[in-house]
Amino acid sequence: MGIMNRARIKSPWLLHFDCGSCNGCDIEILAALTPFYDVERFGIVNMGNPKHADVLLVTGPANHRNQRVLSNLYEQMPEPRRVIVVGTCGCTGGVFHNCPNVLGGIDRVIPVDVYIPGCAARPEAIIDGVVLALESIGAHGK
């Protein structure tokens, strides 16, 4: 494992994008950043800029309007990048599976590395998912 990947695993920067979720998972992602769970002590920082991010956290199902925004954000992220889907509706479409504007899971639009089920997913599960994604960077090195 090179020095770059070691640094990445020690301090992964997240980009969060709400792709049409109910907000439940989004506020749990935010909750993971606040004092009770405080992921910043592991070096995990929430970023606003896709060009600075290592990990993309997506919530909610993909729909016709925002699939372009989502793939745009994904394209702007530098390699090695990891995509984590938070919440059942982002994994499969979930409770919104029969909504007319919903395409289904995020993996219909961009490749996904880690799926975190739950409606809404708990902060512990989200932290666990980020760790899983980082392990895969460490194992493959790219």
């Binding site: 792709c19 049409g20 909610g60 729909n63 309007r65 925002n66 919104f96 029969n98 909504c99 007319p100």
Partner: peptide
């Protein structure tokens, strides 16, 4: 329109 899912229609289904 970025998070429109069509819940009102799904509620009829």
């Amino acid at each position: 329109g970025y998070v429109h899912r069509g819940i009102e229609k799904a509620a009829e289904l």
